[in-house]
């Protein structure tokens, strides 16, 4: 447990938090798999490794660093206005999330973030599917602690109805990957996409443990 105390204040909670959480998670895993449109576990690529809370939490902290980087957190804001820039200020023109996360009338994300954008300094990055999480499932990253974010990510009620398998696949989502192609003048996340994907999958396959609160 030593190695993850560096990410936060030493917790006063007993070690069993992890154990309790892992039970909770296995329930989720079970549920997700049960309700997965008739697909069998053997047909999915979700191959669970041995549960290892230490390994899992370690991997998650790498994931967390990426998800809290401007390229990810900027479109997972706490409010209904996305963030902008490497300093994650409120997007200056205050575009609204809208119902579907794609903006509202004049201020649709795609009016500026087009399928492919013109290259150049300060140019908004483009993607065919630019959007925020929808209004009914905001999937907020901004301000989340590692514990909160991990819990949020594995819970289909807060993660966009994703099974763990879907979560793994999400690492290769076009918009997720766009974070590593942010256009001139913007920093990329602290890990490469490959490293991120590896950490992401490791985190999930080793039990999707959440760091201590």
């Amino acid at each position: 447990m030593q190695h993850h105390s560096k990410f936060g204040k030493p917790s006063s909670l007993p070690v069993k938090t992890i154990a309790v959480l892992s039970v909770f998670l296995s329930v989720i895993i079970l549920m997700s798999f049960t309700f997965k449109n008739g697909s069998k576990i053997s047909n999915t690529k979700l191959e669970m490794m041995n549960k290892d809370s230490v390994e899992s939490v370690k991997a998650f902290m790498d994931v967390y660093r990426v998800l809290m980087s401007p390229r990810c957190v900027n479109c997972h804001p706490a409010g209904d206005v996305p963030l902008q820039g490497d300093d994650s200020h409120l997007h200056l023109m205050a575009p609204q999330r809208g119902k579907d996360g794609k903006g509202i009338n004049v201020m649709k994300c795609s009016n500026c973030h087009q399928p492919t954008n013109v290259a150049g300094l300060n140019m908004p990055p483009g993607d065919p599917n630019w959007h925020l999480p929808p209004a009914n499932m905001k999937m907020v990253f901004e301000g989340r602690t590692p514990n909160q974010l991990a819990r949020q990510l594995v819970n289909p009620k807060t993660n966009g109805n994703k099974t763990l398998q879907k979560l793994i696949e999400h690492a290769d989502d076009g918009l997720v990957k766009a974070g590593w192609n942010p256009g001139e003048g913007r920093t990329v996340p602290p890990l490469s996409h490959e490293e991120f994907k590896k950490a992401w999958i490791t985190w999930i396959r080793t039990g999707a443990y959440a760091p201590r609160p």
């Binding site: 902008q84 820039g85 200056l92 023109m93 205050a94 300094l121 300060n122």
Partner: peptide, 13 residues
């Protein structure tokens, strides 16, 4: 500040 994404201008709202 080299463009309006870094130089904040007052806007409608």
């Amino acid at each position: 500040q080299n463009n309006f994404n870094r130089y904040r201008m007052i806007r409608f709202h």
